[in-house]
């Protein structure tokens, strides 16, 4: 019906189709393999085992809390990085990317040597134990997930520019009003997709968690840790929980992603 459908597109080079197909296969086929390997009849029993339920509940709770912390801490950081003219901001911008390029296990070790008993900060906190607690799981998740929010949000803030904010100021709006009524609405789509990515990353976090927080059912053993443990002994159980993780991830993307994209244009 729309004229766009009839418009002749400039051709896509055929050469791109082959690697594109391989790339797609690389993403989709492993999941297919997982489904093929699973024993669907025993799936309900395996997913509802006490260990699995505890791990899923812990994962959802910690990932949700981590996402909130990413918003409360990473959001302001993105604004400062995008708007501040303080010298050295360029360096900070690079530093924020560190958790993206570090192997998560290294991140976990770094957290251990900061917040652990003998750590830089931890040794000054007598009576407060952070490793082996659910708080440690959340800290590890925030560590690895926050860059996703900060980078996306900062890019959107820089793209939106400061001209709208200047106009709002000339209309009599104080800085906080400008931030609340102009800056935030302008970057809302980027904020949405940043939060979804952060949640997904937190949900899948493994290396930093197992290194920094350990693994104990109901306290620190999230779904990925449970899968890893089961893979050693009960492969069918591991496959069943992997499927559960896939389903949760797909659900998050399906619910939140299109909404985030729609506003973007």
């Amino acid at each position: 019906m729309s004229t766009r459908d009839r418009r002749v597109r400039t051709g896509l080079p055929v050469l791109l189709w082959v690697p594109a197909a391989v790339a797609l296969a690389l993403v989709v086929l492993p999941v297919v393999g997982l489904v093929a390997r699973s024993d669907l009849s025993s799936l309900p029993a395996r997913i509802s085992s006490p260990g699995a339920v505890a791990a899923l509940g812990l994962s959802l709770r910690t990932a949700a809390l981590s996402t909130v912390l990413c918003l409360l801490l990473g959001g302001p950081l993105a604004v400062v990085l995008a708007r501040s003219r303080v010298p050295g901001v360029r360096v900070l911008r690079a530093v924020v990317l560190l958790p993206l390029v570090l192997p998560p296990v290294v991140g976990g070790l770094a957290l251990l040597y900061l917040l652990g008993r003998g750590g830089l900060l931890g040794s000054h906190l007598p009576g407060v134990r952070i490793p082996y607690t659910t708080a440690a799981v959340v800290i590890a998740q925030v560590f690895v997930a926050m860059p996703f929010l900060v980078v996306g949000l900062e890019g959107a803030l820089r793209t939106a520019g400061e001209r709208y904010e200047a106009v709002a100021a000339t209309l009599g709006a104080r800085p906080w009003t400008v931030f609340r009524r102009v800056t935030v609405p302008l970057v809302l789509p980027a904020l949405g997709s940043g939060l979804v990515l952060s949640f997904a990353r937190a949900l899948g976090e493994f290396g930093a968690t197992i290194t920094f927080a350990g693994s104990l059912e109901g306290v620190t053993r999230t779904l990925p840790l449970q899968v890893y443990l089961l893979a050693e002994t009960d492969v069918d159980g591991a496959v069943a929980l992997s499927l559960l993780l896939v389903v949760v991830a797909v659900a998050v993307i399906a619910v939140a992603r299109p909404r985030a994209l729609r506003g973007q244009r």
Partner: peptide
Amino acid sequence: RPASEEQDVKAVLTKVRAGE
């Protein structure tokens, strides 16, 4: 009364060596 049940011996050693 373990604080953590690790995946393997190496992970146990890492925690002990770190003093955690």
